[in-house]
Write a protein that binds this DNA or RNA. Structure first.
Lengths: 268, 268
DNA sequence: ATTGGTCTCTCATATAACGGGAAGTCGTTG
DNA sequence: CAACGACTTCCCGTTATATGAGAGACCAAT
């Protein structure tokens, strides 16, 4: 028997159906007809029609008058813009970073792609000492140097990565910066094998870092990094914290996918 | 008596309330408590609680267990990303561009900001002839040269514009490119006065264009451009089409704000 | 014209949402 | 530490609301 009844059910059936409709859009399914949707959700044509109309009424869907099909609408755009401007992603990541920083006693950051760089959008200082975490949020890191960016770019499809990086001049930041395209590609492939990235002064000679990708499905959407200044005298090798880092990326990936593992509404 | 009953009402009350909740988030209101929302929408606390829970159930909202307040959730992020990747904005603009291009017999484009450039995300050829519209979509135009970018940047708050552009080196593309920061600022201010921008070979010596901002509320979010090659022998001065251009920006702005003027579901 | 496939609308029925109220939580104040 | 107040969560009977079937309208093919 499936334990569907208990907790796992929306308190508002009709609303839930409407939201399912929104969620049912994807890169493959960019629009729905009434009938299609009706038997996708197993409801009557009437209901499907009403639900679509209700969503379109507020602009979440856009009815195409000629094809009689519904696609995502302008309100979806406003919500998307709002999510961006209010730093929704950073807010989501904060809780995860907080714990990661505490557990590792180092600085933890969350970065997302921005062209052929990655950009730090959230950072939490490890309790350790007065670190230089001030200018971390907003910083850009180039694709070819450092663990942070590698943990994102390595997990892209090779084609997608080539499209972004191929033929681009790679600046040398330190003696250890890899600037040969072929060699770089091998580094990326190795990183996919191990599942995480390590850098000891590739980009910034004074820092060391481990990083791993945050994913939605298979697709990487950013990376988490644990970073330390080499001058700091910290206990252990930073690589000892890889398991914890991978836990954190897993956790954040789940949050983004809304596979609520930590949800269970706190019941004593 | 208010004519609220007839057409202007969602077919699904409960769903509509849920959607209103989503819409009620803004840069100012990033989270809601149950009670607050209840008397904002004029509904019972019970109902508010259920609605919020239903939205959170699918991840559209994220309940903060400690503050007991709801903010936008991870599903909102997925929807936002989907909107981006499926080119929702471009799709919205297409219909408007189509008509604008036909009416003006020139090429019409829609551009949105990207750092200190604007990027063309949709373009429609004027029926005229075999234009060079192929590489238009994806093209970047710098903030300081050409009507297209000026029609966006001019309408930003001065502070916001300064933050992006101040101190940046301005490349000279043609004899007419303005590269002095102070002079440029004056050009921006003039543009705000007239409400539209004109360029005759500022960025590309071979083209002439008029452009006007697309807005959400007061804020510019992009621009529409009508462009012609100087070598083409087209009837009239391109500036004759400014009224039509302004109509089109108005139209697109309304679409984005979902002030459905053209909605009325086509009833013979 | 005729047909098959959708979409739209109406209407009676049953179901799902509603609001009042009680019980449970948390934070504050005396 | 106790008692209050503010808020949230849960429960339950009532009623308003969403539902599905079916008829009519619409469009695109044959």
């Amino acid at each position: 028997m499936d334990s569907l009844d208990d907790d796992v059910r929306s308190p508002l059936q009709t609303v839930d159906r409407a939201l399912q409709i929104l969620i049912s859009f994807s890169e493959q399914r960019r629009d729905w007809g009434v009938m299609e949707l009706a038997d996708e959700l197993g409801i009557d044509k009437s209901s499907a029609q009403r639900l679509l109309a209700a969503l379109a009424f507020r602009g979440f869907l856009r009815p195409d008058p000629i094809s009689r099909r519904y696609s995502l609408g302008p309100t979806m755009w406003r919500m998307a813009a709002l999510w961006e401007r209010t730093g929704g992603l950073a807010a989501l990541a904060d809780a995860v970073l907080e714990r990661l920083a505490q557990d590792t006693e180092r600085t933890a950051t969350f970065t997302i792609p921005d062209g052929f760089h990655v950009r730090c959008i959230a950072a939490v200082d490890g309790g350790g000492g007065p670190l230089r975490s001030h200018p971390l949020v907003g910083d850009l890191y180039p694709a070819h140097a450092g663990a942070t960016s590698r943990a994102y770019f390595a997990f892209l499809d090779r084609n997608e990565r080539r499209a972004l990086l191929s033929g681009r001049p790679f600046a040398r930041f330190t003696d250890l910066t890899e600037v040969d395209e072929a060699a770089l590609e091998r580094v990326f492939e190795d990183t996919v094998q191990t599942g995480w990235a390590f850098s000891d002064g590739e980009y910034d000679a004074a820092t060391r870092a481990i990083a791993a990708p945050v994913r939605l499905g298979r697709r990487p959407i950013g990376s988490l990094t644990v970073v330390e200044g080499k001058s700091e005298e910290l206990p252990g090798d930073i690589r000892d914290h890889v398991p914890r880092l991978l836990e954190a990326t897993e956790e954040l990936s789940n949050l983004l996918a809304h596979r609520t593992p930590a949800a269970r509404t706190r019941r004593r």
